[in-house]
Nucleic acid binder design. Structure first.
Lengths: 220, 220
DNA sequence: TTTATATTTTAGTCATGACTAAAAACGAAA
DNA sequence: TTTCGTTTTTAGTCATGACTAAAATATAAA
């Protein structure tokens, strides 16, 4: 049973909202995520239920089925492979890729994805550091650690922040430590745990242990 | 004014059927090309007329406008760039690319096409030897010549046949001289104009001047 | 010039995926 | 357990792009 583009997008949203199928998800939450109205979501849930990619009991939210999980992971795989292509091959910036990948992920051709995967040399993570599921839907997550836990000389990439207050993001922006930045730990001060970090191979910045503890990175 | 995917496909068909805007095109011909019914075509022509990409007079066929030509050429450009990508980078075979390119051509992102063009090193022709319009819609056609007019040691690629009868195509298939084959002229017999041709760098075949005159190639 | 035939358009229907307004069901508090 | 507010579903509508059947127009033949 094939899914339309709209159905694929709903399924992906349900997958994410359910935390990979672990929780059930409400109609209202899906509507918010998809930027549509709850009434439209109800219609779609009936269709997805008919296609057996979700388990749908009226008034009680939805659970994604095993088949649904597999489908969602395929879409996520395609999305992330295209992101790698856009950044690595076409020199897109880290934050320019999402919308285009959102379109590319719906191209229907298993051969295309197989070849693209090979062409990109079987990447395991996308430019945001998120893992790329393999063709069977298996995912190897890469641990994200606060950068104060990294060793001296260890390189990595900033992928998330714990504290996402405007003030903290403004601070990060100011020192140039944006999400996606490649970093290297130059020095750690034993006394107070503060760090010296090299950002994008050019700019060296200092930060306290507190700040560093709020910045998550993947190691490379 | 944006065009939907369906509208883009109709416009492209009209562009091709009208021989690049030189002739007017009938509803029936469009229906045949698009594999739909004439009634559906009528509906679409009204829409394309409203968007001023065609000039539509009921019962009298359509002419493509300058704006329409520009739009069609943009779509053709995208299609052919993706074909180059699929063949050159992802190792698709010459005859596997059309359907996938048919989907990829509708991705909406001028930046993507600009970057893809650069990544492919600004190709001027697609894998079928068809010219790729530039971003302003300008096209530099490459001459197609009957292979009996090629010189000895000249290489090229078969791109079309004049006689497309089943019998002739069967003959071509039998000797391995399919559309898309890379060829090289090994010898030309002065006496009767017959040729010896190397196909895909491995198979050598003989053909009469008559046969050769019906096979069109681009030189490389 | 009238008629016959082929082409094209209109009218009405269907599926998809959105919407609004109204009804129904749930769940928590009284 | 009844009520009240929130969530969710249903009913009815719209746009897109397809379809069939019927009507309208054009064109070629008599």
């Amino acid at each position: 049973m094939n899914l339309t583009t709209a159905e694929e997008n709903y399924l992906k949203a349900i997958y994410h909202l359910s935390d990979g199928g672990k929780k059930s998800v409400s109609t209202n939450d899906i509507a918010a995520e998809m930027k549509t109205k709850p009434a439209s979501v109800s219609d779609m849930l009936r269709k997805l239920g008919d296609k057996e990619v979700i388990e749908y009991r009226k008034y009680y939210g939805v659970n994604i089925t095993e088949e649904g999980k597999k489908r969602a992971l395929q879409t996520i795989r395609k999305h992330r492979l295209w992101e790698v292509f856009l950044v690595d091959k076409l020199n897109f910036a880290w934050d320019e890729v999402h919308e285009v990948a959102e379109e590319l992920e719906h191209i229907q051709s298993p051969l295309l994805i197989q070849r693209l995967d090979a062409f990109l040399d079987y990447p395991k993570f996308d430019p945001h550091g998120d893992p790329i599921p393999d063709e069977y839907g298996d995912v190897r997550a890469r641990p994200r650690i606060p950068i104060n836990e990294m060793e001296i000389d260890q390189s990595g990439q900033i992928v998330a922040v714990k504290d996402s207050s405007a003030a903290f993001l403004r601070y990060l922006d100011k020192v140039g430590a944006y999400i996606g930045a490649r970093i290297k730990v130059l020095d750690k001060v034993e006394f107070d745990g503060s760090l010296e970090i090299l950002v994008d191979q050019k700019k060296s910045i200092f930060m306290s242990k507190d700040v560093a503890g709020n910045i998550l990175a993947i190691q490379s």
